[in-house]
Computed example of a mutant assay.
Amino acid sequence: MSTQEKLLKRDSFIERGARSRARALLDPGSMRELLDPFCGVASPWLPQQGVTAQADDGVVVAKGLFNGQSTVVLAIEGAYQGGSMGEVGGAKIAGALELAAEDNRRGIPTRAVILFETGGVRLQEANLGLAAIADIQAAIVDLRRYQPVIGITAGTVGCYGGMSIAAGLCSYLIVTREARLGLNGPAVIEQEAGLAEFNSRDKPFIWSLTGGEQRYHSGLVDAYVGDDTVQIRGTLAGLFQRGLPAQHRSAQADGFLARLAEVDASVQAAPETVRSIYSKGYAA
């Protein structure tokens, strides 16, 4: 089969919206959306700043089954406000994770998948967005004591800001070639450090440092897959079957600091150098 034929046959995950992605991951017919758009729970702050509020605040909370087991999928709509986190959307994600943890404490095994397509905090909501992201991070740490919390970044927005820290707290991370993962976005780095440090218009350079393939070969994510819904779902099943990791990535701080100390900050980072340093592993 030619490359063109393969592309035509695949079921693109990236081309799906947040709601469609959640439905495609859960078992057919099992999805039930909580706080859907008809509930009318939208940001009260955006209209005051002349921004139209979306009825679901750009976050889909889908409860259902994944291979027969209770699972909640939290999908961020990157097409709305860049997937930014505000008070309402953040509360929906944090609340769902908290309820999943409570399920586990009551003997109901419930897992979680978070679809990260987000630039981080919503600037129009400032501290409210930051507080919401902090709640999300705390809820991930709570739930992952019982069940794996798996993050997926497929594209096209990527995962940045405080939500990249939330992604780093997940038990496992899945990325595609089109994905990007980093604390600061290219435009922010260029603004703060200058064009010589990071050219936000140089897309090949951006992907060579923060793209999915680089992050995978640097050991910062756990699975690198193609833009195919069936493949992503199969990878998700394999990671759930693996169970909780022996040690979460966020617990390997000493190893990460040792790798970071090897980076020469006096010169512009090169993809090959970064990959070589970070692929050494992180165990303390």
Rank of each mutant, 00 (worst) to 15 (best):
A100E: 03
Y278I: 12
E15N: 10
I114R: 02
M1K: 14
P186D: 08
A101G: 11
L99F: 07
L25E: 00
L236R: 01
A134C: 09
L34C: 01
I76Q: 02
G58T: 07
L34T: 04
G89V: 04
Q4T: 06
V221F: 05
Q124E: 15
W207Y: 10
G168H: 06
G107H: 02
V61Q: 01
L209G: 00
A96C: 10
L130I: 14
S12F: 04
A223N: 05
V225L: 13
V274E: 08
R23K: 13
S20M: 08
E5I: 11
L46A: 06
I189L: 14
V175G: 01
S70R: 08
A253H: 15
H248E: 11
R32Y: 07
L128R: 14
V157F: 04
R249F: 15
M31P: 03
S200D: 05
G219F: 05
E117W: 03
L260Y: 15
H248Y: 14
A237F: 08
S276P: 09
E117I: 05
F38H: 11
L123V: 14
R275I: 11
I93D: 04
I108V: 14
G89M: 04
P44T: 10
A193Y: 15
Y216V: 02
V263W: 15
L181Y: 15
L7D: 11
D36Y: 09
W207R: 00
C39H: 11
L257A: 15
E87C: 08
G238E: 12
A94Q: 06
E125V: 07
G238T: 04
T156H: 11
L257I: 15
T118F: 03
Q48H: 06
R111W: 09
P28V: 07
R259K: 15
S200I: 02
D264S: 13
A53H: 04
G158Q: 03
L25Q: 00
A131Y: 11
N104E: 11
G155F: 03
Y224H: 07
V61D: 01
I76H: 03
R201K: 13
